[in-house]
Write a protein that binds this DNA or RNA. Structure first.
Lengths: 237, 237
DNA sequence: GTATAATCGACTGCATGCAATTTTGCCATC
DNA sequence: GATGGCAAAATTGCATGCAGTCGATTATAC
């Protein structure tokens, strides 16, 4: 309901709705996603839901086990590290491309987005993460390369999920000033500096998130509590 | 029918069958892929075909236009360049990872694969391309990272399609000696050298292929006509 | 009381049918 | 001869139904 709603057809609409729900922590990692219930709630048949789930599985946001249905993916720390490293490599390329063909219009777009980020600085965690991700997606868009855009989007979403799993509260807000610096470097056509900033930005985000797993938010509690919760529930009925 | 056939279920089987058909130029770029005919030929219903087509579309091997069906993708030169550059970035990471945790067993696997490549040195063009791609996939496997494997596979297939479109005959065979050198560098744990070799290997492949578009096969003619066709169209309305 | 086996229920895997949309061939008109 | 509109055929979009599979619960034996 929030993000890119130029998607015309229900197919993609459902897909991005589910994606948003996952990234905004309405659907938590590990939750089951039965086709029937989702279909009922969305008012469509299982066919469309299944399509969406398959696509999200391809993107790595959903885990799909044969004959056992779908659940929101629960990326391991290993996986998280891999995704972040990969992201660094890809965004290296994005920086080179963007800087090779920079215009005033593009700079203005970046500034406009940054303004939105600043405005939402004290908003909820999921919204911060979403805006931060969109900054990187905007950069990818500015390259004009559909290929780069596609992969930055995908990897960005995965990172978003990872952060929502492992990041401690407000660990990603500080990213705004780093985005600021990156824009400045781009404006000065300083490729090396922009790339270095992006690299340290990404590793900083990853470190803030991934190293702090043990002090992670309530999400992990819920998951960890599940066996106990079940015992309590079962002792009642 | 050739490659990884540990896929148990028809779902994935159909998918890899179509993928092989595309990469081996049985299905040529631009060809229509109607669900009915494919379903009939594969002996399954349209449901499964559709699933496979959607997945291949996500991988970039198939183009899927609303209400107009699927066709084998016809990557533009721009796209081809993007994919190859992206590949370079990703395989950089693969090299680092592989070298960080190299074992004798892994080296042996690489050697075994190279032997297969040498053996098939004078085989048909699609087979050469497939084996070359599998070399890179094997490297990704050796990292032990599912994430890296997934993306190297996907990008590798896309490059395969591109090569089958634009490469002149036998332009990719020379890659064998380059693979040889890469293995040696890996054996010596010379990360920098391995990475440089990989980089120049990939750009060499790309150059051999992408620069020679003009002498490419008959398929490209159709594309080359586009500017002229457009002129005619635009002079009309 | 524990371990093992069998039954039950829920959910997915897949096929098919109907509706919607696009394309193609045809005809009338300019 | 070319252009515009119209109708029919082909093809996808989506829903639903039935069968198969997996997991959970219960029953049974030790």
């Amino acid at each position: 309901m929030k993000a890119s709603d130029k998607a015309k057809h229900r197919n993609e609409l459902i897909c991005s709705a589910l994606r948003s729900a996952i990234l905004e922590r309405v659907l938590l990692p590990g939750m089951k996603l039965p086709e029937d219930s989702l279909g009922e709630r969305f008012g469509v048949s299982r066919t469309l839901i299944r399509q969406a789930l398959e696509r999200l599985a391809a993107e790595g946001l959903v885990e799909l086990r044969r004959n056992r249905g779908a659940m929101v993916a629960k990326p391991s720390l290993e996986e998280a590290r891999d995704v972040f490293e990969l992201r660094t490599q890809i965004e290296d390329l994005v920086i080179s491309r963007v800087i090779k063909d920079m215009t005033l219009e593009k700079l203005a777009e970046l500034e406009a987005h940054l303004a939105k980020e600043v405005e939402a600085e004290h908003a909820s965690e999921p919204i911060s993460i979403r805006l931060a991700t969109e900054f990187h997606i905007l950069l990818a868009k500015l390259t004009g390369s559909p290929v780069l855009l596609r992969y930055v989007e995908e990897i960005g979403y995965r990172c978003g999920l990872t952060l929502s799993l492992y990041a401690r509260p407000h660990s990603s807000n500080c990213g705004i000033s780093e985005h600021r610096q990156i824009i400045d470097a781009l404006a000065n056509a300083d490729e090396e500096k922009a790339r270095d900033l992006m690299r340290s930005h990404l590793t900083a985000v990853a470190d803030r998130a991934l190293i702090t797993q043990k002090e992670a938010g309530p999400l992990v509690y819920l998951d960890a509590l599940e066996p106990y919760a079940r015992q309590v529930r079962e002792s009642r009925d």
